[in-house]
Amino acid sequence: MTPERRGEAEFVDSVLVALADATRRHLLDLLAAQGELTATTLAKQLPVSRQAVVKHLAVLNAAGLVSGSRVGREVRYGVHPAALDATVRWMAAVATDWDRRLANIKRAAESADQKPD
């Protein structure tokens, strides 16, 4: 695996780990729907503490899915949908590979059916 592919694979891994948690997916949904929000505002909309929200946001930030920007004393978090691009490319490649494999299996099965006994 080339270094850039390894880096992309690690990036995809971090995105998938971040998205594996329902609370983090909910945070992304809230940020996507409402724009930039603080951890306090997000915590009011979830059944978890502000501290838990901050920890989840740190995971999302490490995966490149959100970032925080300081506005006065507050840190406002926003979504970075472009961070999903590498993951989408990986998923599309996996889907294409599976489609190719299934087509090969289908051809082999149809070919076996047509051979005389």
Rank of each mutant, 00 (worst) to 15 (best):
P3D: 12
E4L: 04
R5C: 02
R5V: 05
R6K: 06
R6T: 06
G7K: 00
E8D: 12
E8T: 05
A9H: 09
A9G: 07
A9L: 15
V12G: 01
V12Q: 06
D13N: 11
S14H: 08
V15N: 00
V15L: 01
L16E: 14
L16G: 09
L16M: 11
A18F: 03
A18K: 00
A22W: 07
A22S: 11
R24F: 01
L27I: 13
L28E: 01
D29A: 13
L30I: 06
L31E: 13
L31K: 03
A32T: 06
A33P: 14
G35Q: 11
E36M: 01
L37Y: 01
T38N: 14
T38E: 14
A39P: 08
T40Q: 12
L42Y: 02
L42W: 03
K44Q: 13
L46S: 05
L46D: 10
P47E: 14
P47I: 04
V48A: 11
V48I: 15
A52H: 10
K55Q: 15
H56V: 02
H56Y: 09
A58V: 05
L60W: 07
L60N: 04
N61C: 11
N61Q: 14
A62M: 12
A63L: 02
G64T: 00
L65T: 00
V66P: 01
V66S: 02
G68K: 02
S69T: 15
R70Q: 15
R70N: 10
R70V: 12
V71F: 06
V71D: 15
G72W: 12
G72H: 11
R73G: 14
R73N: 13
E74R: 14
V75E: 11
R76Y: 12
R76I: 06
Y77Q: 08
Y77I: 04
G78T: 11
G78Y: 07
V79F: 07
V79E: 08
V79I: 07
V79D: 12
